[in-house]
Design a protein around this nucleic acid. Structure first.
Lengths: 130, 130
DNA sequence: CCGCATCCAGAATGATACTG
DNA sequence: CAGTATCATTCTGGATGCGG
């Protein structure tokens, strides 16, 4: 999305603007409501559809299906169908999906460490408007 | 608006998933269409409204305003108004906003390193459906 | 059990015009 | 220059019912 220069002081290993624009879709996927939560849950091993559904509280069947499809399309998750009765479908992280956990957890760590600051800033901001 | 659709309901502080769920709003912010790009642009120092607008190609005036307000509310950026004529408003990262750049860049690095894998997986997935 | 299809309400975003 | 206001459009996510 960025056509201008993306000079980030110092350590940024920026190979070019083209790549910067390309990472937007990736961030969009990670930023959606459920993807990261699902990836994190799958970090412990393969899970069935309804197992994931129970682990990720509040997700609807529809969104679980859609999100898993998206992750599968991106090569983050494999989908294995066992044609048994009743049917069974396992979802498991690919190596790519597993490699994602590290930077995501770094972000999670940051979020946990700074959550109170953020919430405090929000409260202060909101009260300033009153 | 930008500030999420999360935690509207008073959810029980669940010990197991509680931690994971708390970071969702943070990830939701990073995943929105513009926040990360703006934070990255501000990494080089304070910028004026229209400077940012030019650097982030494709953003509308409206979304730039909204996103900057959200970042300000979260304590990521400061907004400084100079009551000159014509008016001038500078946006600058706070220490909190600057500290966010590190984990975000880790994610960006991961994204760039794996972009080809993702795109290949997408093409393969799409062709399998045809 | 898995999950697709459909419908629908509301949110997010964009385009455009206007203001101090 | 830096917004605000309004309208139109697109997108998201939940609910429900059906089908393998």
């Amino acid at each position: 999305m960025i056509r201008g220069n993306m000079h980030v002081t110092g350590e940024a290993p920026d190979p070019g603007q083209g790549n910067c624009r390309k990472i937007s879709p990736v961030l969009a996927r990670l930023g959606d409501k459920w993807s990261v939560l699902i990836v994190m849950q799958l970090g412990n091993g393969p899970r069935r559809f309804n197992e994931i559904r129970r682990m990720v509280d509040g997700i609807s069947q529809r969104m679980l299906t859609l999100t898993l499809r998206g992750l599968e399309r991106d090569g983050m998750v494999t989908r294995t169908v066992y044609p048994t009765i009743p049917p069974r479908v396992d979802y498991e992280l690919t190596p790519l999906g597993r490699s994602l956990r590290e930077p995501v957890q770094a972000l999670g760590t940051w979020a946990m460490a700074n959550l109170d600051k953020i919430e405090m800033a929000q409260r202060e901001f909101d009260s300033r408007k009153a």
